[in-house]
Design a protein around this nucleic acid. Structure first.
Lengths: 346, 346
DNA sequence: CACCAACCTTGAAACATTTCAATCCCGCCG
DNA sequence: CGGCGGGATTGAAATGTTTCAAGGTTGGTG
């Protein structure tokens, strides 16, 4: 196929109509209701489109239609493979509905998030999925007020004012720490922060709850705060952990996510600690890199892709179903035991 | 700010004009040339916009303007953090130019890639950045023919028909293998595939070239092919490597990217091999997870963010500068030596 | 041969915004 | 007091697509 070199403007339906010797309406019919056009005409129009290199102008289509053919996902941290996997799940669902997916990354910055949302609203996307920096920020609340279909991902709605999809983070914290208690650990660190992040708060809450239920002294569950959920913060937590006096030093660490856990693992290995013998480690999310670590990481699995697919389903329901009611989809996290907590402590 | 509940349609400039008691044109002026409007009127209009919760309809703006305010990047593998870092770099440049960035992921599938491109052309994005599955595919070539500003990322143009940005992969292969030779290795595996991927081909080519230059027998540089550049393929390559007869077994492996290297590392550790003593490993890309591996990975660094920033600069130049000439920006890769190749072999 | 139905095609209106030439209004100068 | 200049505002046109009622053509039937 040889395309005409563009003399200036991209060809429009009007140009195609002229080239094929039919009216605008017919060209549009070929595009949108091919069955209604006679074969001969259709072929003539199609050839004209091919010759001219015609491409639908989506803005004009959208302007007329009043709505775009796109969903958007604003993720919290593009550097964390967890969110990529969620996005994958959303994308499969979007593909099935023949919608595009715009993926944005707030990098944990509220201002960037607001800017992205602004643009998305201007684009009139059909719905917005978001893992927010702060679910109560005004730019988040306004999405709902605007009547734009909207689902919160990896975070539950407090007031049911919108759909949300997440795993039970409290439960996740419970099973992680229960697993460590099972393995014989009696002094455990919780590595994670800042506590302004809801997920961190709830995972810690679950950890503390189960710790208390087993009758362990609260001071033996040590919180090592971090400033972010990153590998390098994990490493630095490792340093602080190594600096603790031996009597207080935990034999195991539960990290608020896998990136922290990987950082901690790296520090431990560098410092000559054996994992899991000297230090057992549990992560959260079960990203692929967790299983791929040199000492494969025990982690609390979230159904990442399914989280995404479900979120997309909900937002599409809100967009198309007049009887839509908001739904909080909660998934149950599962512990995936691997070598990093391998042995039972005597 | 209390938004009016949406009775149906989103408010348009017309509604704002009515509410503020001015004409359409004035509202538009407030939006686009605030200086030209008197303060009193401007404030009246701005209040009306706030009261109504008016948001510009980007489709209409774009239709009139003839062009969108967006760039797009179609990446090859969203699961590989390397591409995320490149996207970060592009995004910073896009932000500076006050453009949105659409990030798409072809997941290595040509059909998906074609579909994404199709949508992007329909959206009339200002430019397309792409790390293609196959640079010669027809849907890639057509982008240029259409006159859409277009830059190839992480892959050089053969014929100079468009801009491109990449590191010198042949050189990358050379320095990786030279490093291993330096460290005393005399039997080395190249892990990577498929060879249809240009990056793999060129890294292997560089490896072979330097191997020959050092006068090493060709059969001592063993190619272990993989079906993809993933962690699990790296693991499986590790199995095949372990299965080689001792006399032929390499003492070091150069992997076509870090994901393979991480997989190989994991297998090695599981199999009880010491890294680097029993097996030294070099990766490629220097993603953050390479440094974060339990045995930090020696890797060939690409300036990931800068690759992205440069690509964005080039595409913007093509979009705005009438005297634009295509440019092949080549960066020099650098070896980052870490523990995975730590010791000199006796 | 006339008429009808079925099937195709047409043309105009509508979508929300931007642009720009034209108009309006005001105060100031002669 | 008339005219002028200049800043502020207006209104109409234009962007490309879709929709839909209305019109046109064809072939077949009575």
């Amino acid at each position: 196929m040889t395309l005409q070199p563009r003399n200036g403007r991209a060809p429009s339906v009007k140009d195609v109509a002229a080239a094929a010797g039919v009216s605008l309406g017919t060209v549009s019919n070929v595009l949108n209701r091919p069955a209604v056009v006679s074969t001969a005409t259709r072929e003539r129009v199609e050839r004209a489109m091919a010759d001219l290199g015609f491409v639908r102008n989506e803005s004009a289509r959208q302007l007329r239609a009043g709505t775009s053919r796109a969903l958007a996902y604003v993720m919290l941290d593009g550097g964390n493979p967890f969110f990529h996997d969620v996005a994958e799940g959303i994308e499969t669902a979007a593909e099935d509905a023949d919608l595009s997916l715009f993926v944005c990354n707030s990098s944990g910055r509220s201002d960037r998030e607001a800017k992205h949302i602004d643009r998305l609203v201007q684009q009139r996307v059909q719905g917005i999925l978001i893992t927010p920096v702060d679910p109560d920020a005004s730019h988040i609340v306004e999405i709902g007020q605007r009547g734009i279909p909207f689902v919160m991902v990896d975070r539950l709605s407090r007031d049911g004012g919108h759909c949300s999809v997440a795993v039970d983070d409290v439960l996740g914290g419970r099973i992680a720490v229960e697993h460590l208690i099972d393995r014989g650990h009696r002094r455990v660190a919780f590595v994670g922060g800042p506590l302004s992040v809801g997920q961190v708060r709830e995972r810690l809450q679950g950890a503390r709850a189960v710790w208390a239920e087993f009758g362990m002294p609260a001071e033996d569950l040590i919180h090592l705060p971090t400033e972010a959920l990153t590998v390098s913060e994990g490493r630095s937590a490792g340093e602080r952990l190594a600096g603790l006096p031996t009597r207080r030093r935990p034999t195991a660490a539960f990290c608020a996510n896998d990136l922290l856990a990987l950082g901690l693992l790296q520090h431990a290995v560098t410092a000559g600690l054996r994992v899991p013998d000297d230090l057992a480690i549990v992560g959260f999310d079960d990203i692929d890199f967790a299983a791929a670590a040199a000492v494969p990481l025990t982690s609390v699995r979230q159904p990442r892709q399914e989280l995404g697919r479900t979120a997309a389903r909900l937002v599409l329901d809100e967009a198309t179903n007049p009887d839509h009611t908001h739904e909080q989809a909660t998934f149950v996290p599962a512990l995936v035991a691997r070598a990093s907590t391998g042995t039972v402590r005597r």
